[in-house]
Amino acid sequence: MPNDLQIADRAFSSRLIIGTGKYASLDLMVRAIEASQAEMVTVAVRRVNVQDRSEGSLLDHLEASHLAILPNTAGCYTATDAVRTAHLAREAGLSNWIKLEVIGDERTLYPDNEALLEATRVLVADGFVVLPYTNDDPVACRKLEDAGAAAVMPLGAPIGSGLGIQNPNNIRIIKEFASVPVIVDAGVGTASDAAVAMELGADAVLMNTAIAAATDPPAMARAMKLAVEAGRLAHLAGRIPRKAYATASSPLEGVVGR
């Protein structure tokens, strides 16, 4: 399908990728994923609780739905830790796709550009399909692409902030520069934010908190699905130029009484 999202060797008909964190229950998560019609979901890699095995496996709940699983390196603050986590994720999930996060600051969770680039190089050489979570910086994105990233994932705003796209112009420029897919990752608060990202030309949007922490996650998931589709369609349709003054929509001739 020409309208599919193509990342590396895989095609997706959905341009919405969602996270699996922060849901009040696994059942709610499953229903939200269904409502979103996402075809790829992110997961985190963490130590197994060896004392208490009652929690069960997240994969049991995800595998039935034939979703692509995209493990992340969330919580890693060095390239070494991120690379180590990626290798564990590959063995746990038997897939070489990784959402690469190397965080540089605890309060903003902004990426450490230098370490992110280094980890990207190492993982690409190790045969991974690397999707780095990055600043909304066109130069950083270009460097990641040059290093072999399969997509670039600029943030719209800090993770979990719900602030929406803070620098729309940068997202537009990143898309203009990039020859790999641009996935706006983080910062979305509500449906209009997702639509804006897509209208700016993003190839996809990745979000977690906006759905998982909404009052009604399945309803918000559906709103996000529709917003991503609407934004994509509007982008392809070509919006009108912005003008300072009015242009009448109705004919100027034949007005009664003139």
Partner: peptide, 26 residues
């Protein structure tokens, strides 16, 4: 440790073992 090596990899005194799985995350 690759899955095919679980039988042949021996955990010994002082070894540092990590066992991880997938949990919910963004």
């Amino acid at each position: 440790i690759k899955r095919g090596q679980y039988d042949t990899t021996i955990v010994r005194e002082g070894d540092e073992v990590e066992i991880v799985n997938f949990v919910g995350g963004g």
